[in-house]
């Protein structure tokens, strides 16, 4: 899948989780950019992503996510 397409789908998940329709995520988007991004929503978001793309992250991978770009690239590798 194209990285751009992954970003688009992840963006939809973000909108859903954070209940904000005007969220636009970019590669550098991280927890401090989005109001309400805390441990709870973070895990909700990760499980939603896992479910949506039918993949599974390793513990270490989750802990090493620095921003949305990290996650999307990893999704691409896992799907690829």
């Amino acid at each position: 899948m194209e990285l751009a397409e992954i970003f688009k789908q992840v963006n939809e998940i973000f909108k859903d989780i954070f209940e904000e329709d005007d969220i636009v995520i970019e590669a550098e988007t991280s927890a401090k950019d989005i109001d309400g991004w805390d441990s709870l929503t973070h895990m909700q978001m990760i499980t939603a992503v896992e479910k949506h793309f039918k993949i599974k992250f390793e513990l270490n991978e989750i802990l090493n996510f620095k921003n949305a770009g990290d996650m999307c690239r990893l999704i691409q590798t896992k799907l690829g």
Binding site: S39, L40, H42, M43, I46, T47, L59, I62, L63
Partner: peptide, 17 residues
């Protein structure tokens, strides 16, 4: 402590947190 536990127990939902 917190992040690893929550990541590991992410399927527990709120209980994991």
């Amino acid at each position: 402590i917190f992040k690893p536990i929550v990541a590991q127990k992410r399927y527990w939902g709120n209980w994991g947190v």
